Amino acid sequence: MRILLMTRFYRSGQTTHVLDLCLELLQLGHRVLLAIADLNDVIFLQKLKQAAVPHLLTAKQDKLHRQLTRWKPEIIHNHSAHTLPVAVQLGRLLNIPTVSTVHYLDFEPRELLEEQTAVILISQEMRWHFADLRVPAFVVENGVRLAPLRTRAKRWRQLALLLGQETPEKRENFYQLSQHLILWGWEVLAAGNWQLPGVKTLGWVYDAAPFLRKANLVVGTGRAIREGMAAGCAAYVLGSYCDGLVTPENVEGLQTTNFSGRTQRQSFCPKSAANDLARPDPERFLELGRFGRRYALQHFSSGQMALAVEGVYRQALARQANLPG
């Protein structure tokens, strides 16, 4: 299958997700072309080239149309609101189906989703939120690439990694948690654009794996939690809201909202956090890391994600073939 993937470049897990999907689809034997707009990051461009992902550094309709009339894609998979209007137009010009993955609840322009052949939603919460869509919608949760890991070899170190980009909505929660972690004896690193007192800032990182291998606690939402669990870390859900430590008892509920913090919709509470983090039991945290790794192997594989997406493509192609005219 010849698949055009479209996105805008973001310094976030959304772009990492698209790259992982490209790699998995290539591994499944598909022909893949990535059209990425606003890529102004030299290191990420090098990463694309090293991964041998065929790509075009544009999402402009006229430039893409000239290329695609020769390349002849069979389907377009869009991942960004910014590139969706062009994806819709290209689908019409080439008479091929278009699929969009919705990464956020507040996705706009929502009306253009109705013009898709199919829509992919990344959580059960999102299915409820977009229940009024009149086109076929499928839940395919984000996957992460699962590198080999010996969780029994992981050693205790009271090190927390804050993983994610700073936004105004997250700022106060992350400030409060970071300062209490330091007070409770934790070493704290932050990957992203954070500037927090006493916290070592790593900036935007292209591969969090080396830092996750050293940490025993990862803090964030969405993909950060999935990557942390896959790396054998205990995980603490914190964003605009706080759902706290991921445990075997609450993991399914937190997964329903994509580890966003929206399961309980609470602000960070130092008193509640202290129960888990003020005097951490090393063996408990190591066991939570081992549990997280087992759970990730069962539920977060990017390979399984790509197979599910491939299934959506086939249904979209079949639906397009059955359209009148």
Rank of each mutant, 00 (worst) to 15 (best):
W204C: 01
A37M: 05
M229W: 03
L133T: 02
L84M: 01
K72E: 11
S100C: 14
V312E: 05
I75N: 04
A137I: 04
N275Q: 15
F285W: 15
M6Q: 01
R150Q: 15
G303W: 12
T58S: 13
H82E: 15
G292K: 10
L297I: 01
V88K: 06
Y206D: 07
L112G: 04
V188F: 03
N193V: 07
R265L: 02
Q264C: 09
V102W: 00
I96C: 05
F44V: 08
R319L: 13
Q264N: 13
R319M: 09
T98S: 12
R66E: 12
F9T: 04
H299F: 10
L56A: 06
A273I: 12
E141M: 04
L245Q: 09
R284C: 13
G292M: 04
Q165T: 04
T256Q: 10
L196N: 03
W156S: 06
V219F: 09
L161V: 02
A215Y: 09
A52I: 00
V119E: 08
L245P: 11
R293S: 15
P282A: 01
P324E: 04
E111G: 00
Q50V: 14
L19N: 00
R66M: 11
L212V: 09
G164F: 13
C22V: 15
K154M: 07
Q67S: 05
S12A: 14
T167W: 08
A52G: 00
Q50Y: 05
L113N: 01
L286S: 05
E172T: 11
L254R: 01
W128Q: 15
R265T: 01
R171W: 15
Y236R: 08
A224Y: 08
M126G: 03
Y175W: 09
T7Y: 00
Q50E: 14
L161Q: 00
R150Y: 07
F44I: 10
Q14M: 10
T15H: 04
W156C: 09
T101L: 10
L177I: 11
L149E: 03
E125C: 02
L146I: 12
A59E: 13
Q124P: 08
A231C: 02
K47E: 13
V102I: 11
S80P: 07
P54M: 15
P197T: 06
A59W: 05
N258L: 12
N95W: 11
F138K: 10
K154L: 12
R92D: 14
Q176N: 13
